[in-house]
Amino acid sequence: MKNFEYAGADTVERATMLCAENGTKAIAGGTNLIDLMKLQVETPARLVDLNSIDDRRIEEEEGGLRIGALASNTAVAVDQRIRSDYPVLAKAILAGATQQLRNKASVGGNLGQRTRCFYFTNIDQPCNKRDPGSGCGALTGVARIHAILGASRHCIATYPGDMAVAMAALDAQVELSGLANKSRMVAVRDFHRCPGYTPELDNILEPGELVVAVHLPAPVGGTQLYRKVRERSSYAFALCSVAAIVDVKRGKIARADLAFGSIAPKPWVDQRLTQLLVGEKPNMALFEKAADILVDGARGVGDNDYKIPLVRRTLIATLCEATEI
C-alpha cells in the first residue's frame, strides 16, 4: 500500500471539496478500496473517511424510500420495508459477498465497486481500465468471468456486483452531490458506463462528486426474484445473474422489469425484453424469444462464450419461476 494522508469529513460539502482534489479518494466501508490499495491498483495520495457523515438512514419519502449512501449493505437487506416491498433488492444483497463484508460495505461504495477482472487487479499485467493505453490482457488471456455485452476492444471487464443489478431492475435513482452542493439525480441504469475508448471511467461521477443516497420508487409488488448462477453455492461472484420483477394479471404479464449482472460492464437492462413480454400470456416460446433478444448482440472471446447460453437459460428459468409456468 502506498502511503497516504488520512483525513475525515463530517459533511458532504467538506467531503466533495476534498475529493475534488487530484489523488483523493473517499472511503466508507473500504471493503473494495482497501483490497485494491493493498494491490496498489488504487494509490490515492489522500483518503477521505466519510463515516462521520450522518447519513446511513433508510427513510420513507414521497413515492418511495431513501437509502443514505453510508447505510451498510446489511442494514438495507435486513430492513423490514425493503424485505416486504423491494424483496429483489434484499435478495440481491444477500446473494453477494458474505455477512462480514456486507456488514462493512456501504451502499454508495457498493455502487462504485470495481471490476474483478484478473488483469485489472494485477499491476504487472496490461489493463486499459487501470492504466489507460497499456492494453487489455483479458482479450487474449483468461476471460471466463468477462463481459459478453456492452464491452469494447479496449476492455471486456464486467461490473461484478449484485445490489446494483436489483436497483437497476427497480429503476432506482442515485442522488449525487458535487462541488458547491450541486446535486443531481441519475438512474442506476445510467450510473455505470460501458468502456468504449475510456474504460478507466467506470461510471458517470464527476471529480469530487459523491453518491449521497439511493432513492427507490414506490413499491410495485409482483414477484421479485434474484437468481445468481455461481460456481460455489456461496461467497462467489456471479457467472451471470438476473434480477426480475414480474407481475401477471388476469393471465397476462403486466410487468417485466429485468436486469442482468456479470455479463456486461454495467447492470444490463434491455428494454426490448420488457416491451416483448408485457401484455403477453406467459409461455415458453415467449420466454425463448425474450432470451434470444437478450443475447442477439452478445459476443464472447472464447473463454466466456458459455455465458451466452447460460444467461439465456437463466433468464428462461427466472421467467418460468416468476410466472409459475
Partner: peptide, 25 residues
C-alpha cells in the same frame, strides 16, 4: 488453476477466484 496463455502467469491467484469449497457447498 487458470494460467495466462500469453505469459504463463497464474491468473486466479487468490481465494476469491480459486474456489475452495465453502460451508454451503
Amino acid at each position: 488453476l487458470h494460467f495466462d496463455p500469453n505469459d504463463g502467469h497464474l491468473v486466479n491467484c487468490d481465494l476469491a477466484e480459486y474456489h475452495v469449497p465453502v460451508h454451503r457447498d
